[in-house]
Write a protein that binds this DNA or RNA. Structure first.
Lengths: 158, 158
DNA sequence: CGAAATTAGTTTACATGTCAACTATCTTCA
DNA sequence: TGAAGATAGTTGACATGTAAACTAATTTCG
């Protein structure tokens, strides 16, 4: 069996033990490299991917959200959201608003400056997606989505 | 267009703007959840995925490797490898050996304890791969590998 | 030959993701 | 009613990945 491109990339001496292992590594590596491209894009606008994601979530909701709610929509646990919101607040992109009915609850709202960042990134984000994945074409993109969904289907929710 | 499972998972209000964006998010999410499963497995044996990867690389090479070489085989830049090797060394899983011909070079070697960890994880790692991706079947796995490779093909090397 | 340039690895600072513990606030129940 | 239990968010510690700066060692070149 000829060494796959992935195998050569990794300077791996032995062939993959199984297709599943190759797929897993393929998945991680592709995802990692994809993320890197977005990291670079976001960095040009002064935010990190995780920060951008929070801004995006808040804009999508159209109103301030409690920290617990934000956490439920991201891969990050609550203490991590605290840190993210800290830094977003420091950068003037969000503000914290304590709920008057329940003093435990903190709402996070996007500032106009945060909205500006989002607006500035709307087009570049779309373009980067097309640039990185557009060559797959609609048929293969749908197939990729199908396979990824099929892969996840039996995994228990977290 | 009916909301996809992924969209519902993310409590996303609006449909995906494009198949490319859906695929990107699908990729990141699938990869993330896959990694989580391995994190849990490795944690049971007292190592993190990145540490395990380094042990694996060293065993695969069959001899000690310089830090720069290790870095070239992982997604981590050199200062990060220093930290990883620090912690591996602290745990007694690797040792540092300074090269006598070039005093700048540090070789990293797996200790017998490190080899024990690797051996203990060999089978569980294979089984987890099968468990998480085996249901796709050979045909779909090959197709997934093809699509992921095709996705990456035009991306410049880093 | 010796200074300048290059290289290998470390240190420092930062962001992010995780877990455990903690504080403040609200709800439940005897 | 007031204590116990539950909840929302924060703090602290840790690992990992990144960039910049630094130190030690080797190589290059005038």
């Amino acid at each position: 069996m000829a060494a796959t491109r992935l195998q050569r990339d990794l300077k791996k001496k032995r062939p993959f033990e199984s297709a599943a292992q190759e797929a897993a590594l393929n998945l991680l590596r592709t995802s990692d490299r994809l993320q890197h491209r977005f990291v670079r894009l976001f960095r040009q606008h002064g935010v990190t991917p995780a920060q951008y994601n929070i801004l995006r979530i808040l804009r999508g909701e159209g109103q301030p959200l409690p920290i617990l709610e934000i956490a439920s929509r991201t891969v990050t646990v609550v203490p991590g959201i605290t840190g993210l919101v800290d830094r977003l607040q420091q950068a003037g992109l969000v503000e914290r608003i304590r709920c008057e009915q329940d003093r435990r609850v903190i709402y996070v709202a996007v500032t106009p400056k945060g909205m500006d960042i989002l607006a500035a990134l709307d087009r570049p984000v779309v373009e980067l997606h097309e640039k990185l994945l557009g060559h797959l074409g609609q048929k293969d993109l749908k197939e990729l989505n199908r396979l990824l969904a099929k892969a996840r289907a039996p995994w228990p929710d977290e």
